[in-house]
């Protein structure tokens, strides 16, 4: 008898969109639509088990094998350098990682650039490639406020529409990398569930081609 395929979904809109795709290719689990506070849902018929987890934890669940596959933003993957297979770009949750600041902010100045961000590794790597001396200020949210209060010169954050930046008189200064949701798999699980995981990827690809 086939074992359950464990799938980690990020809580929120992205996870719901990803579930819609998975349901569309036959990996549905109707109980997930029920309004309750449960975090784990199973469908015995098609042997899938879904977990809702914090978006930044998806890669951890997959890397450590608690989930066989997961849906995660490329921003999290880059930040955490998780040792997983990145099998598919789902093309949803599209946005970009950018350096933002007040209009006309110069990045190359005589003094160390203060960068506020939730993504210290991505920021450090980006400025290292440009041989720039920076100071990272690690924050967990409301990053836009850091330059407003003169705590940092710039921020490195995800930009979707740019509205939040604009409302705080900030603007994107340089793009770092485009972001979208990726389907990832645990490297060991992939060996033992290869056919099911590959079949899932092929079906998603086919679905995307049909809807294009």
């Amino acid at each position: 008898m086939a074992e359950y395929l464990n799938i980690a979904l990020p809580k929120g809109r992205l996870g719901e969109k990803a579930y819609d795709i998975l349901e569309g290719i036959g990996f549905g689990c109707p109980s997930i639509r029920e309004q309750n506070r449960k975090l784990v849902f199973e469908n015995e018929e098609n042997k899938v088990r879904y977990f809702w987890v914090k978006p930044s934890d998806v890669a951890v669940y997959v890397e450590r094998g608690a989930a066989d596959i997961g849906i995660v933003g490329k921003d999290i993957l880059l930040e955490q350098s998780a040792d997983v297979y990145e099998l598919l770009d789902l093309g949803i949750g599209k946005c970009r990682m950018a350096v933002a600041g007040f209009k006309g902010t110069r990045l190359n100045t005589e003094r160390t650039l203060r960068v506020a961000t939730k993504f210290p590794n991505i920021a450090r790597e980006y400025f290292r490639r440009q041989s720039m001396d920076i100071e990272i200020i690690k924050l967990h949210g409301s990053i836009e406020i850091a330059p407003v209060l003169h705590m940092s010169d710039v921020i490195v954050d995800i930009v979707e529409t740019g509205t939040t930046l604009k409302e705080n008189n900030l603007e994107p200064l340089e793009d770092i990398v485009p972001i979208s949701a990726r389907l990832i798999a645990n490297k060991a699980s992939y060996q033992f569930n290869h056919a099911r995981i590959q079949n899932m990827c092929d079906s998603i690809e086919a679905l995307r081609k049909d809807t294009k």
Binding site: G65, A66, A188, Q191, F192
Partner: peptide
């Protein structure tokens, strides 16, 4: 090498 039940090589 991988063995079933251990999440890494």
């Amino acid at each position: 090498g991988f063995v079933d039940g251990i999440p890494t090589s």
